[in-house]
Amino acid sequence: MYKKNTVYVVGHAKTSNDNAITEQFKLFFISFVIDTDLDEVVDVKSTATIDITSEFIKSMFLGQKFDRYYKEIEDEVKRRYFGTSQRAIIVAYKDAVKKYTEVKQRYY
């Protein structure tokens, strides 16, 4: 399904205690499949408890560049996502970008 020029990275963050994600998963995770030639997100999945939430998060990241942290992506999350996991999405995104940067420096 995924080409050989893709990598898989996961970002994680804590969610608030009153969040269903905390009860079910303890932490919030977003997994990204990234095309290393283009530094572009080709697939996204998150540990949301409602399918539409996971799909909405995917829609914000799919096709985005991942070669560095983009404040514009954070701003889009703040402008469009008003669930209790808003901050966790941003933190998980930052964590994943950091991991991807390390992967690119080490292997590519």
Score class of each variant (00 low, 15 high):
14 K>Y: 08
44 V>G: 01
64 Q>R: 14
65 K>I: 02
39 D>L: 07
90 I>P: 01
108 Y>S: 02
19 N>M: 02
88 A>Q: 14
11 G>Q: 06
44 V>R: 01
3 K>P: 07
43 D>Y: 01
23 E>L: 07
98 K>M: 15
42 V>P: 00
68 R>W: 08
21 I>P: 00
51 D>F: 11
80 R>E: 13
97 V>T: 08
92 A>W: 07
91 V>S: 10
27 L>G: 01
23 E>S: 07
14 K>A: 06
47 T>V: 05
44 V>S: 03
77 V>N: 09
27 L>Q: 13
51 D>A: 13
72 E>F: 10
22 T>Q: 06
25 F>C: 00
54 S>W: 06
41 V>C: 08
40 E>R: 10
49 T>V: 07
60 M>V: 06
95 D>R: 04
41 V>W: 04
65 K>S: 08
107 Y>N: 05
81 Y>D: 04
21 I>D: 00
5 N>L: 06
26 K>F: 01
84 T>F: 09
10 V>P: 00
63 G>Y: 04
94 K>P: 02
93 Y>N: 04
45 K>Y: 09
106 R>Y: 15
43 D>E: 07
36 T>P: 03
2 Y>K: 12
71 K>S: 11
43 D>N: 04
28 F>N: 01
35 D>A: 05
59 S>D: 13
13 A>K: 08
107 Y>L: 14
62 L>R: 12
103 V>S: 06
10 V>H: 02
85 S>C: 12
76 E>S: 12
98 K>W: 10
7 V>D: 08
103 V>P: 02
79 R>D: 12
54 S>D: 15
104 K>P: 03
108 Y>T: 00
91 V>T: 14
78 K>T: 07
58 K>N: 11
4 K>S: 11
77 V>R: 12
58 K>L: 09
35 D>T: 07
10 V>K: 07
103 V>H: 15
100 Y>V: 11
66 F>T: 07
23 E>W: 09
57 I>H: 01
8 Y>C: 08
85 S>E: 12
15 T>H: 01
27 L>F: 11
2 Y>I: 10
53 T>Y: 11
86 Q>F: 05
56 F>A: 09
99 K>A: 12
54 S>H: 04
95 D>F: 11
2 Y>R: 14
50 I>N: 02
16 S>A: 09
105 Q>S: 12
8 Y>R: 07
59 S>N: 10
90 I>C: 06
68 R>E: 12
15 T>V: 14
107 Y>F: 15
30 I>F: 08
38 L>W: 08
23 E>R: 03
24 Q>C: 02
60 M>E: 05
10 V>M: 07
9 V>H: 09
90 I>H: 08
50 I>A: 03
82 F>P: 00
73 I>N: 06
60 M>T: 01
25 F>N: 04
89 I>D: 06
47 T>C: 06
15 T>S: 04
21 I>A: 01
107 Y>M: 09
15 T>L: 03
85 S>T: 13
6 T>E: 05
67 D>T: 07
16 S>H: 02
3 K>Q: 13
3 K>M: 11
37 D>G: 09
87 R>T: 15
66 F>A: 11
105 Q>L: 14
99 K>M: 10
84 T>E: 14
25 F>L: 02
48 A>N: 15
24 Q>S: 05
12 H>P: 00
